[in-house]
Design a protein around this nucleic acid. Structure first.
Length: 336
DNA sequence: TTAGGGTTAGAC
DNA sequence: GTCTAACCCTAA
């Protein structure tokens, strides 16, 4: 189209077009169809976020590595697109968002009514188990050898993601998931594992939950001790695909998956069938493990809700009876 | 410059 | 009519 050709000419200049230029051009495009994001623009945005962090939209636009691809976009466009990506990556449709918003407002009311209630942070509302977007299964790399060891690998991935994303206000679950999914090939039910793991890491004090469901690494976290920041924890594994680091949760790099696919193409029918059967069995084991982790997370949430309900009931009792001593005695007996 | 809420176009 | 993605507006 003619108008887009003009803007492409602007793009061909060395400098990044200012917002004013893009906005003025928007006037020219009045009535024109929406500019759909291309796959190239999308990947450039993701790469930009990886490099500079979410929220550094202007920096990403100025980065010569991305300015060529994103020259038609303003920083606001980047922000909006990243928001859309975050929402869809979580499997949240408008209904889910409305439901979560409703749930959150209800919880805020609860907090207002019971300031001393047992804390079931409203920031946990996005830790619900959501639809999973399975990406790939490594038949050789998912070995179920016990939850603790497997989870320690996810711990490292989460910490690596938060470290490398460098978001000043911390990283949310979506951003962490997108980083990991972009860098590796996580197993099925990865989102469930991530939700559960974020909870336990926060509970154990290794992560700090800051505003708006964002997580930061606790200053005293032992996970990164001795490890240089900004370096992939899996670099060793990347250099040695057949090395020893395969006994845990180890998402595959895309390049490794490509190698796997190439190997599979050369298999005989019988070999392929055997490999497929083995992959299915191991994937099922991994899914069972993920399911168990999800159940644990659900149980923890249920416990917290029950505790909150109990605390609310206790406070109500205090108000109504005006016999605090009696209630305190009752609570003491209940706890024992 | 950015975040977040709101609006609207387009696909289904 | 519903849903999603792109776009708009405004406060900080």
């Amino acid at each position: 189209m003619f108008d887009f050709d003009i803007l492409q000419l602007i793009c061909d200049q060395d400098s990044v077009p200012s917002n004013a230029i893009i906005e003025d051009f928007g006037l020219l495009l009045m009535g024109a169809p929406k500019q759909k994001w291309t796959a190239e623009e999308e990947s450039a945005l993701k790469a930009g976020v990886r490099k500079h962090g979410a929220g550094k939209w202007r920096t990403i636009l100025k980065d010569p590595e991305f300015s060529g691809t994103l020259c038609l976009r303003s920083n606001v466009d980047l922000k909006d697109k990243w928001r859309n990506l975050s929402v869809t990556a979580n499997g949240w449709g408008s209904r889910e968002k409305a439901r979560i918003a409703m749930k959150r407002s209800q919880q805020i009311v609860k907090h207002d009514n019971s300031p001393k209630a047992v804390s079931t942070s409203i920031e946990d509302s996005d830790d619900e188990i959501l639809d999973i977007k399975p990406i790939a299964v490594s038949s050789e790399n998912i070995h179920v050898t016990g939850q603790k060891r497997s989870f320690s690998r996810i711990d490292n991935l989460i910490l690596e993601a938060i470290t490398n994303l460098k978001e000043p206000t911390g990283s949310n679950k979506t951003t962490i998931a997108m980083y990991i999914e972009d860098q590796y090939w996580p197993p099925p039910d990865f989102t469930q594992l991530l939700s559960a793991k974020l909870k336990t890491l926060t509970a154990s004090g290794r992560l700090i939950k800051v505003v708006k469901r964002r997580y930061r690494i606790a200053p005293t976290s032992a996970f990164l001790k001795g490890k240089p920041s900004n370096v992939s924890i899996y670099e060793g594994r990347q250099r040695e695909p057949s090395g020893s680091v395969v006994d845990d949760f180890t998402p595959l790099l895309r390049s490794q998956v490509d190698v796997e696919l190439a190997r599979m193409r050369n298999m005989t029918a019988q070999e392929a069938a055997a490999a497929a059967a083995q992959a299915v069995a191991e994937a099922e084991a991994a899914m069972a493990q993920a399911e168990e982790a999800a159940k644990e997370a659900e149980a923890a949430e249920a416990d917290a809700e029950a505790a909150q309900a109990f605390a609310e009931a206790a406070l109500l009792t205090i108000k109504n009876r005006k016999t605090a001593d009696l209630v305190i005695s009752f609570l003491a007996i209940s706890i024992m």
